[in-house]
Write a protein that binds this DNA or RNA. Sequence first.
DNA 1: CACCCGTGGTG
DNA 2: TCACCAAGGGT
Length: 311
Amino acid sequence: MRATELLGWYEHARRDLPWRRPGVTPWQILVSEVMLQQTPVARVAPVWTEWVTRWPTPSATAAAGVADVLRAWGRLGYPRRAKRLHECAVIIATRFDDVVPSDVDTLLTLPGVGSYTARAVACFAYRQRVPVVDTNVRRVVTRVVHGVAHAPPSSRDLDEVAALLPDDDTAPRFSAALMELGATVCTARSPRCGDCPLSRCRWRERKYPPATAPRRVQRYAGTDRQVRGLLLDVLRNSSAPVERAALDMVWLTDTAQRDRALHSLLADGLVEQTPDGRFALAGEGEPDQSVTSAPDSVDPDVVEPQANRRR
DNA sequence: CACCCGTGGTG
DNA sequence: TCACCAAGGGT
């Protein structure tokens, strides 16, 4: 793969995304990367802008309550990401002097920061020459280098992408360009190969062989995930604690499933029970300075006690 | 490795 | 219409 072709294309094709503008801090880039985990750019952009305006630094985020963080997260999905991001803020504020670590191995110790996010921060926020492998990069390399439409994640992906990186300081831009190509041209559904800047593509040379084993997507309708979403939506939209009966109304078809969903939200620390037995977003009523969260006991009459409450 | 974790746009 | 899919991570 010719780096010059990709970099030349990226120079004019790159989208003007808010987290790419000058002055954006490593923390704000970390926020964007977490929000972008499985959520499309178009939905992240407005939430990210509002978020970093309200909480520009880790310490500002840490000082907020989890409930406010979950509300600001809105409907981006997978709200555990929001809670882990808040945990990141607390850790960075208290242990790293409000500075996001630049070292990949240290980044990997942060909650909700995995292989992709750690390297994305090291690369895009700190300009390090480290491979960044997301679904876009994997798909582009799979097609261009191997001539295959799709490939499952492999432990060799990192080394392969590392070998493609330019030796100089253009490596971060190269990775950004690779991702951009996958996001806008070499897309999963209907790739726009006519707009591709690459002169050589093994997939094209092989006449675009289709994927052999279509990967089945996760079902959503009727799952615990849907029920959790409905329950959390009620709590996000209520400033006051909610009665159990109000939560029960969101899922009448399967009471056992509904109870299981509420149970798991409590276990995840996304929801808490007030002393009078009602329910609220975690951290409701401690809107400031809550560096140490203090989980309270669960009323056994209303919900079965948790075996593994975090302390 | 398989499965779980939300939500909404789209071909 | 309804699967598919979107800058993944944790267990």
